[in-house]
Design a protein around this nucleic acid. Structure first.
Lengths: 253, 253
DNA sequence: AACCCTAAACTGGTCAGACCAGCAATAAGA
DNA sequence: TCTTATTGCTGGTCTGACCAGTTTAGGGTT
């Protein structure tokens, strides 16, 4: 394997094994290059890879630091390959919701079929919390409600995938949810959908639960699509159109 | 933002937006550097980042290629938390197929909607390969066929999730498919389902495609109720070297 | 003509040294 | 003492060279 990979592997291993604590500064590129006996290019690429994976953070003029392994979200889905891949891309949101539509539907279906008394109790509590929430900070209860449904499906695979997707959504367009709800009209509709979903599951009607759940996600996706007109210049980057032919003209013999 | 980040973002954006298909070769570093007006170092670091994220694969002397996220490379998907958790447990298979049922259905639906000519060509080739296969070694063509469908859906999230699930299935009960097919009766039924699925997608009938796909997975799940297999393989980790002191001795003034 | 082998001409991988830009501590001047 | 300019760190970019795999086109040889 390439030297670069070896270096990045060594560093990552060191960091993860506890040799370097989060927040700690790692040696400068020039120091590493001399000490490791490789060129600075190699060190840079290795660091760049670690940076891309979220292991370290680099600041111009200061140095590189071990990333503070972050927050409370837990290790499980946070550093999935999916995470790194798509966050920040607008279209990702639609892809995400396209998948979620099916999975939430299935989760609701199974939940209506297999929910135990404990599940129903949790679900009810989550639903009540959802009802008595001010429109602004309702990202958390919404998450809790859907999560309760998924767990009631008793399918751990489903739980994992959906929690991963949910995390990705939060990273991709965190603001969109809070942008969507404030409109009183929207909020009422979503509230109604949640209630329908809740009642279908509690009544043990799988097919209806699926129908309502998919419709709910589809509704969110469509209204979110309409809102896209405005808004996001945040991560916008010069038009990729002229890049396309650039890439194409080398593909054909 | 650094130039490097912009470049990697541009390329990633292009790839995800479908400008570059999986497996396709991207221009050489030198070409990119001149066309984009930056140095080769920057291009290298950008590519390196994409490589670290699994978006592209790079081979010495050949070039860089858009990663067709799957099979034998398996570096990142293999050690997903999910892997360790569930492999070997029988029930996992049902959970897996319960989820797959929905996702394959959605993939077929989207494929019937959005397949390009190139997609149709690939799909046809995969289907032909599936037809002319002896029952024994048909795990690979089956994988190829379904993978072609998913990629035709043009939803990278779907591609990733399904490829992950497929890997898990392979680990969980790899032999099951080849145990299922040898029965001539089964094989013919599955063959018919594949043909129906193929034709629905090629004819551009989304709803029918979804129906057939979900029915197919459900059929497999139901007829697969007596399998139990093994599958144990882990990634070994090379011996870590003691450059810990190397890193430590630069931390103190 | 068909074959094999070698010599370019690609590709990515590494190296060296230079210069620019952000940052921080220190020395110089008020 | 306070302010300012210098100096010396840091990462970021550029250049041009060379090494190492891969492919391909020629040029023999049979």
């Amino acid at each position: 394997m390439g030297i670069s990979k070896e270096i990045s592997y060594k560093l990552e291993h060191l960091i993860l094994e506890g040799g370097l604590a989060p927040g700690q500064k790692i040696p400068s590129e020039r120091q590493l290059s001399t000490k490791l006996g490789v060129s600075r290019s190699v060190v840079r690429e290795a660091l760049h890879e670690l940076q891309a994976r979220g292991v370290i953070e680099t600041r111009h003029g200061k140095g590189s630091f071990v990333a503070s392994i972050v927050p409370e979200s837990g290790a499980q889905g946070a550093n999935s390959p999916l995470m790194y891949l798509y966050q920040g891309h607008t279209r990702t949101l639609y892809d995400l919701l396209e998948v979620r539509e099916q999975l939430e539907g299935q989760a609701a279906f199974l939940a209506a079929q297999r929910a135990t008394n404990l599940d129903r109790h949790r679900l009810t509590r989550a639903f009540r919390a959802l009802e008595s929430t001010d429109p602004l900070s309702n990202a958390r209860p919404d998450h809790g409600f859907h999560h309760a449904i998924v767990e009631a499906s008793h399918n751990p695979i489903l739980v994992h995938i959906l929690s991963g997707l949910k995390n990705m959504m939060l990273l991709t367009v965190q603001a969109s949810v809070s942008n969507l709800n404030p409109k009183e009209d929207m909020r009422r509709k979503i509230m109604g959908q949640h209630r329908q979903l809740y009642e279908a599951i509690m009544a043990g009607k799988p097919d209806q639960a699926r129908k309502v759940a998919t419709a709910h996600v589809r509704f969110v996706r469509q209204t979110m699509k309409e809102m896209e007109k405005e808004g996001d210049e945040l991560l916008r980057i010069p038009a990729p159109e002229d890049l396309a032919d650039l890439l194409n003209d080398s593909g054909s013999p």
